[in-house]
Design a binder for these strands. Sequence first.
DNA 1: CGCAATCTTGAACACCCTCAAGCATGGTGG
DNA 2: CCACCATGCTTGAGGGTGTTCAAGATTGCG
Lengths: 249, 249
Amino acid sequence: MGQRITTAQPSPVKITCNHCSLSNLCLPLALDDNDVNRLEDIVQQGQTFNRGALVFEQQAPFKSCFVVRSGAVKTSVITENGEEQVTGFFLPGEIVGLDSMSDDIYSCTAKALEYTSVCELPFSQLEHLATHIPTLQHHFFQLMSQEIKNSQQLSLLLSKNSAEERIASLLLSLSSRFKRRRLSPTHFNLPMSRSDIANYLGLAVETVSRVITRFQSQGLIKAQGREIQLLDIEALQAVTREFSKCRPT
Amino acid sequence: MGQRITTAQPSPVKITCNHCSLSNLCLPLALDDNDVNRLEDIVQQGQTFNRGALVFEQQAPFKSCFVVRSGAVKTSVITENGEEQVTGFFLPGEIVGLDSMSDDIYSCTAKALEYTSVCELPFSQLEHLATHIPTLQHHFFQLMSQEIKNSQQLSLLLSKNSAEERIASLLLSLSSRFKRRRLSPTHFNLPMSRSDIANYLGLAVETVSRVITRFQSQGLIKAQGREIQLLDIEALQAVTREFSKCRPT
DNA sequence: CGCAATCTTGAACACCCTCAAGCATGGTGG
DNA sequence: CCACCATGCTTGAGGGTGTTCAAGATTGCG
C-alpha cells in the first residue's frame, strides 16, 4: 500500500504557537499568553509526513495526540475481518488521537493523505499540564466532547440518510471546515480518494461516483477528479434535509 | 408520549460511593479512599425517574453528567427534520451526558426506559475537583475517549454490517455489559422496545422483528417479547463476523 | 509512451424498506 | 373481572435503493 517513508526532521525555525497561523483554531485559542508558553514547551513541532506515510499505527503504544498543521490525515481501523474502515478525516487545526486515550495503544491508524505537517502533543505531559491550567483541561474536555458529538453525527448520517444525503453532507462539512481555515469554501481539492469517501460513508465506490456525476448534471457542483466546486450550496443543504420532503404536510 | 412525572426525592439513607454496589464499575474504581470522599461531597445521589421520565432534555442548560445506578437510560437527538435518532443505551455504572460538555446545552435527551436511579455529577464542581485529583482527570479522559471509540464502533456497525450482524452485535454488547454488572449474560430483559432498537441500528422495526424471529428459528436465541435468552453465544459471535465468509480464502 | 491505479458507466440482483393487515400485550374503566 | 382500546410486535407481499460484477475511460507517474 502507501509508502511508509517518514521525514521527522524538526523544521529549522521554531514558530511559536502564538504566531502560528492556526492560533485561532488550535489550543492557544483558549489560553492566555503565559499559558501558551508553557504549552509550547511540551509541543513538538515540525514533523512532516509524505503522502501515504503513517503518523501512527493501530496497536502501537499510545504516546501522543497530533494537531494537523497543514495537509490532511485519514484515520482508519482494521476490523476483525481484516477490512479497513475509515473513521475520520482531519484538516489543519484538528486533533488526531483523542480516541486512543483510554488504552495504552492507538485504536486506529493515522495516515497522511498528502504532504502533511503536524504538532505532537505528548499525552502524559499534556495531562500533567492540564492539572495546572484549568482552562486547558476545560478545553480538552470540550474537544473530546465535540469528538463524541461528531461521531454521533456520523452514525446518524449512516443510519438514516441516503447516499445523496451522505455525500452532500460530507461536501458541506469539508466546505465549512475549509472556510474556517480561511480557504475557499466553494472551490477546493478533496484530499481523499473516492474509495476513502465510499468507505467512510458506508457506500460502494460506484455509488459515490454516480452521485457525484448526478450532482454535477443537476448543476449543484462541478467535479473534475479531486477538484471540487460547489455551485449551489443552498441546494446541497436542501439535499441533506431531503427526506423530510416525503411527509406531505 | 412518555409521562414526565419525576420523583426527585433523595433516598433516606445516603450510601457512600465506597459501599455502592457499583464501586468497581463507576468512578471510585480509579480513586483512593480519601479522594472518593471528596468525590462524594459533590455527587448528588438518590434521584429516581419513572419509566418515560426525562433525566434531561435536549437544548436545556447543561449542568451535570449522570451515572446510572439502576434501571436503564436511552439518549436520543431530534434532527432538523423532526425525526428522533436514538444515540445510545446506558446501563448501571455507565455515564450519560459526556457528549454535552462542549456546549452550554444538552446535545441530546436522556429518558428513563424503566424505573431508574442515578447519581448526579455537577460538571463545574467535577471539573474543579479534577484539577486537584489527577487520577480523576485521567479517568475522565479515559471515559470520554472510550465514548468516542464506542461511537466509532457504532458507525462501523452501521456502515458495513447487515441487519443480522447489527442485531447480533447489540445482543452481545448487552450481554457483556450485563455480565460486568454481575447479571446473567445469557438471560435478560431488554430495557428498550423493538422500535428503539430499530432506530438505534438504522433499521425498520419490521426488520428487527424478522431477524429476531430468524435467530429464534435457528436456535440462536429464545425471545418472548422483551425477555431474551442467548442459547448459542458462539454462533451469534460468528454472525457478527459473517461477512468475512464472502471471501473464499 | 505505457502501465497501474483510480474513476466512471452499465446491467442484474439482493437486501431491506414500505405498506398493509393480523396478532399479542397490558393498562383502564365500567 | 373482563371487555376494551392503545400500543407494541409479528408476518406477508411488492418495490426501490444501493451493491455486485464487469468492462471501459481517465489520470498520473515512471
